[in-house]
């Protein structure tokens, strides 16, 4: 299925997940697997770039909820960036900006992680 893709990049001490396409109950397991792999390798500084994410349902939001606690326990974070207004509206409707740092730009999220490391 090509309706959802994830690309993984490393920037300094940060792992960037780039999401593309439609994140729903069908494709959410792919994102779950990507987070599981990062955690397994003790990679806890995670930026999720949502620039090309066209759609998210609660199944996708649930993936972020499933990992945030473990990531923070390990002194890391999941920061979300570059969301389209359509995707941001869904996060906002559920109050997710209270729990997650949502930034306009990936660069800024990477910089925040680097500052914390100093």
């Amino acid at each position: 299925m090509s309706d959802f893709k994830i690309a993984l990049r490393e920037r300094e001490t940060v792992n960037v997940l780039e999401l593309k396409g439609y994140l729903d109950a069908h494709t959410a397991p792919k994102l779950e697997e990507a987070f599981q792999n990062l955690l397994k390798n003790a990679r806890f500084n995670i930026v999720v770039n949502c620039r090309d994410l066209s759609y998210i349902s609660s199944a996708g939001l649930g993936v972020f909820m499933a990992f945030i606690e473990d990531v923070r326990k390990n002194k890391g974070d999941i920061k979300l960036t570059n969301m389209t207004p359509k995707v941001y509206n869904v996060f906002d409707l559920l109050g997710f900006p209270l729990l997650y740092e949502i930034l306009p730009d990936e660069q800024e999220a990477v910089r925040k992680f680097s500052e914390r490391m100093k």
């Binding site: 349902s57 909820m65 559920l94 729990l99």
Partner: peptide, 12 residues
């Protein structure tokens, strides 16, 4: 706050 999972579909 309590990192709950699931049950958001009906709320949405």
């Amino acid at each position: 706050e309590h990192y709950r999972h699931g049950g958001l579909g009906v709320y949405l």
